[in-house]
Design a protein around this nucleic acid. Structure first.
Lengths: 340, 340
DNA sequence: TTGAAAGCGCTAACAA
DNA sequence: TTGTTAGCGCTTTCAA
């Protein structure tokens, strides 16, 4: 104990937490002793009483490598980190690949190491939201969580883009271009809400023209997009446009189109979704796509979380916002490049 | 408190920690109450007394996006996670981008949330190792940490590949092929030991033939490799081979070679380093490169760490291994493909 | 086989 | 402005 500086624990505690009511001279002396001893407060003890620790978990339940390949995640995480760090909170990343890992992650989350959690890339039947709800840990979701029919859950706060509206705009653009046979490559709509919403947007515009043979489901990967494009081309050689539900899939689709000798946009117009600069700007031709502010959504998630947990360092964790918080849907817009 | 199950705290504690000396019937009843209440032990309190918490920090002080693009990191992290999870420890990722983040990361690390740390991607002058040493947190480094001259540090345990030996083998292969003017594109040898070692291996073989105009420093990125290749070609149009210190840089170099009309391997033979499947197997032509067991190195790091901290759940954290631990250097081997 | 009591290192009331 | 006291929720002797 640094009380060898000649004062009581309380005073040391006050100095460490920069509380008022300590003579400057005493504070100075205490700080000296702290430095000299290399003293670091034991935060388990501190947390036991304050119920706070200025760390926020960022949990992704997805194969790590899918995450690492996906520029979407990179931007999203950047936004989250910026905002968290800006508020003085430490982001702690947890990946969740195997079912066996759930109990341990649950223990960590419930163990009071973090004040809140940011979750994303959840599968439809992921047990994590339920676990966290039971723990009572403040949480914000990235992307609207899919809730199974009949499942009773507390309201879940999320941040998402206007996927349906963005998809509508993309498809309307294709229609305005005079395209007659507009296909779509979707995301895994059995697993992710964004895939459902983008497909709904496509249907909103095309109505009865959206026949099943124009719709091919893929998995948000590049290869999945390529395979889906090939299948579509085999089935409907007459198609003259495709709305692809992600840029990564679109880059795969463009490659197949090129291999099959179809010119883009002359023969087939292509619109993507995401507007990920490293992809959309470098494809051949550059991709017309639906822009969403991914980094901004990440920041928003962090801000929403703080409005539930209270700012780091401010009072007890129990200080949850009184005004009920709602989810946020951010706007999208179509960015015209060369592919459509 | 779950003591409404009619027993004392002690007994509940025993049940939770699966300690012997509890009547099966009582244990059963307690477990029932626990489930029913959804009780999760507060690990801050537990940790305060046990000094353990079965979580290990994985710390990377690198711009997040460099990490996310680098398949090396992906494999490395996969190995680490596998081993950690296998031992029942929770991996906790911390990124470190801005200098302002160091104090907070230090607090988290020193705060007793984790039993040990795995560090990598450290810059030469990174303050992190020093900070952690002062905290007394058991640590293992990924890649030999560069120590500045005159700096006094405790011995640092690391896991690294035989970079120098691998480089030697690569360059010898080029020599055996009859190449006369063998250039090299290096990593940032002012920052990373692996870059230093690979350059040393190159020099070991070439001796006086390794003139400065054949050596070009880059930064382990694809673009850096491309730029370096261009500079080399401008300076030494007569070069007929290049040893490139990473696959990512090699892929950039190959592209420049192609653009400049040099055939590989006929005009210029190329050998890389890393043997990252997603790169080396898909370049045109496929890359001859030095293989290292990246995932295995990750696992090894975790194992070494456990030999310092003791296995998760086993006694107190203080139970550090008595036998002094040493660093490990894993072997490399040349994988022949088409580029050399 | 169980329970009672002490105490891990801190902060938060309350006294001085 | 400072010190004293009482816990935070757990594990761990020790005694029953």
């Amino acid at each position: 104990m640094a009380h060898r500086s000649g004062v009581s624990k309380s005073t040391v505690s006050r100095v460490i937490n920069a509380e008022p009511g300590v003579r400057a001279e005493v504070a100075e002396r205490v700080r000296g002793v702290i430095d000299q001893l290399g003293y670091v407060p034991n935060s388990a003890a501190r947390q036991l009483v304050t119920r706070r620790n200025n760390a926020i978990a960022v949990v992704a339940s997805q194969p790590q490598n899918r995450l690492f390949i996906d520029p979407f995640f990179d931007s999203h995480l950047r936004g989250i980190r910026k905002e968290l760090v800006h508020h003085g909170a430490q982001p702690v990343l947890l990946f969740l690949e195997e079912p066996e890992e759930y109990p341990r992650v649950g223990d960590f989350l419930g163990g009071g190491h973090v004040d809140g959690a940011l979750l994303f890339s959840l599968r439809a039947d992921d047990p994590l939201p339920g676990m966290i709800e039971r723990l009572g840990l403040p949480t914000v979701f990235g992307g609207r969580p899919l809730v199974r029919e009949g499942e009773r859950v507390r309201e879940r706060v999320y941040v998402d883009a206007d996927n349906r509206g963005g998809a509508r705009e993309a498809v309307r653009h294709l229609v305005a271009l005079g395209r007659r046979h507009i296909a779509t490559i979707t995301g895994p709509y059995d697993q992710e809400a964004s895939a459902v919403d983008r497909l709904d947007g496509y249907r909103d515009v095309l109505l009865d023209d959206a026949t099943p043979d124009l719709i091919e489901r893929a998995d948000y990967t590049r290869k999945g997009g390529a395979d889906a494009m090939a299948a579509l081309l085999d089935r409907r050689p007459d198609l003259d446009a495709v709305f692809v539900a992600s840029d990564l899939m679109a880059s795969g689709a463009l490659q197949v189109l090129r291999e099959r000798g179809r010119r883009v946009p002359e023969d087939v117009a292509v619109v993507g979704f995401d507007d990920l600069a490293p992809i959309a700007e470098t494809t051949d031709p550059p991709l017309t796509t639906v822009h969403q502010d991914i980094e901004g959504m990440g920041r928003l998630m962090a801000r929403l979380l703080f409005s539930r947990t209270g700012e780091p360092g401010e009072g007890r964790a129990a200080a949850v916002a009184e005004h009920p918080l709602s989810s946020v849907v951010t706007p999208t817009r179509l960015v015209l490049r060369a592919s459509a």
